[in-house]
Amino acid sequence: MLPVIKGRVAWIFPEPNFDIDLIVGVSNIKIKDVEVLKSVCMKDYDSSFINKVQPGDLIIGGENFGYGHPHYPAFIALRALGISAVIAESFAPGFYRGETSNGFPLIECPDILNYVARWDVLTLDWEQERINNENSGVSLRCLPIPQKTKDLVKHGGILNYLRANRLSESKS
């Protein structure tokens, strides 16, 4: 089943071509310890972010979010802090493939930056492919969400997706 996406906007990155390594700081991208990654996460943007964020919260991004060399630690940290999805104007293709393979929902919504403020509560309607802003009542159309993305999210990542859809008994 697809997860319920309903959460507060914990942060908005309006800048286009945002390099996600900056979320934990480039000097921290080799850290493997999740607790350490959590402790450095978003420090350069809001020093008390980790105290404010709640499970289910969302990140909002601009155009080509995930540009550059997107390494995995930033979203290991954000997911561990409870971030449940990123809704952005658009994503860099490498970042999109990498994070959706990890089972993480990335949703493209071209108008999103115009209709959200920090801490607004948004819900995603997977069926209708719409984002609803519960504070303002505005409903925004997303770009079509690829079936593969839905499958990866539903299965919680590439391994379970492969087990369920692509691997026959004879292969094992």
């Binding site: 995995y72 293709p93 493939r97 990498g98 393979s101 990890n102 593969k148 590439i158 692509r166 292969k171």
Partner: peptide, 21 residues
């Protein structure tokens, strides 16, 4: 094509799903 964390898809099934760009 750099397929990032879906490399296991290629290695385990020798196929990768792609939307033709």
């Amino acid at each position: 094509i750099g397929i990032r964390n879906s490399m296991i898809e290629a290695i385990a099934t020798e196929q990768v799903s792609l939307v033709v760009p």
